[in-house]
Design a binder for these strands. Structure first.
Lengths: 198, 198
DNA sequence: CTATAAACATACAGACTGCATGTATCATCG
DNA sequence: CGATGATACATGCAGTCTGTATGTTTATAG
């Protein structure tokens, strides 16, 4: 039989369709925005029909969640790959921050994860994604630094949130054309300032 | 003439209609969200028609911008009212931060200004509003603290953005039910840590 | 090879946005 | 004060979108 090329297992069919939808949606959500991208346009770009979309995803929002989830995972992996163990805990934090900013420089990530994400999924929804992937690293880094006595003993969750927000803001500003060095300096200043009072 | 009650100048008519629209929109944008609120519902709540809405505002987004602008102004005024001159510049920053968090505790403000705002108007659009109202105070406070030698000399705009983001994050977390004291402590730690290295 | 389930396609109902056109109310000027 | 123009608003319509219900094809189990 020559149509073996089209003969695929169900798993493969689903996998590919989901993948095409997520990739097409990512392209359009980044180029325009979540709100200004319609599902007809997404499925056209993906080469499937809206039936397929609504078979695999509960609604447009669920498709966005899949896009965001994949993106957050990619960021986390990229950081883990580009980061090596550092001597001091604070230095490790600063280095991790640099890796985060570099990963977030990939076009579209700030819009997906920092602008549309919180609005579409709510802050709690984005927190769930963050905690599954990226933020965990930051929290563990801070905890290690605190227990190593290199950072003042402050409420861990709050500190994680506050520093994470600062990093997010830096990523946004840099993406908007601000001077990266300025923000790197500001972040380093904030982190170093957390050293125990002398 | 007994219908003098309905005899109003054009200015008054417009003023009241705009006001009713902005207030109704605010209520609904807060209760649900910008995306899930339709213009038919807004005008019903405001007691006018969609014609009036589209006469006064270019589109739904422009109406949201008006709501956000008014809210940002209210926050700025509330802070200015509740804040008194402090001895040290850093203490003044911390006090201003407390006033900000208190103002942002007004229901709906975090959603309007921190979640939907950036997504609907873009970060640059929200920055415009912020710079017209709130953020200016923070920048000036930081500048004063730097020139008074109470805070390390770091890039002013970057530092303003980073600390502002941390405050925003605190407001969101507190609104979501987190312990306010934890975040206050974290913020105080961040600010105090900016003191020049001893 | 048949039956069943999964994957996808198509058709449709309801709702919404923005605009175009119509009407009422106010302002201006001779 | 009366007519003319402008402003404020109302109504109707076209196009589009989302989610669902129903139909069809493809894979899998027995």
């Amino acid at each position: 039989m020559q149509q073996e090329t089209t003969r695929r297992t169900n798993r493969e069919r689903s996998e590919e369709t989901r993948d095409r939808l997520i990739q097409a949606a990512r392209r359009l959500f980044v180029e325009k925005s979540y709100a200004e991208t319609g599902t007809p346009e997404i499925v056209r770009e993906a080469g499937v029909t809206r039936g397929a979309l609504y078979h695999h995803f509960a609604d447009k929002q669920a498709l966005f969640a899949a896009v965001a989830e994949r993106e957050a995972r990619a960021v986390a992996e990229e950081i883990e790959r580009n980061t090596v163990g550092s001597p001091s805990a604070t230095a490790s934090l600063i280095e991790g921050g640099k890796a985060y900013l570099k990963a977030m420089a990939e076009p579209g990530r700030t819009r997906l994860l920092l602008l549309d994400g919180p609005a579409v999924l709510g802050r709690s929804g984005m927190d769930d994604i963050d905690n599954r992937h990226g933020n965990r690293t930051l929290r563990e880094g801070l905890q290690a630094a605190i227990e190593a006595g290199q950072i003042r003993r402050l409420p861990l969750d709050a500190l994680t949130g506050l520093l994470g927000a600062a990093f997010d803001r830096a990523a946004l500003a840099i993406d908007a054309g601000a001077d990266a060095a300025d923000y790197q300096a500001g972040l380093a200043g904030l982190i170093e300032g957390l050293a125990p009072a002398s």
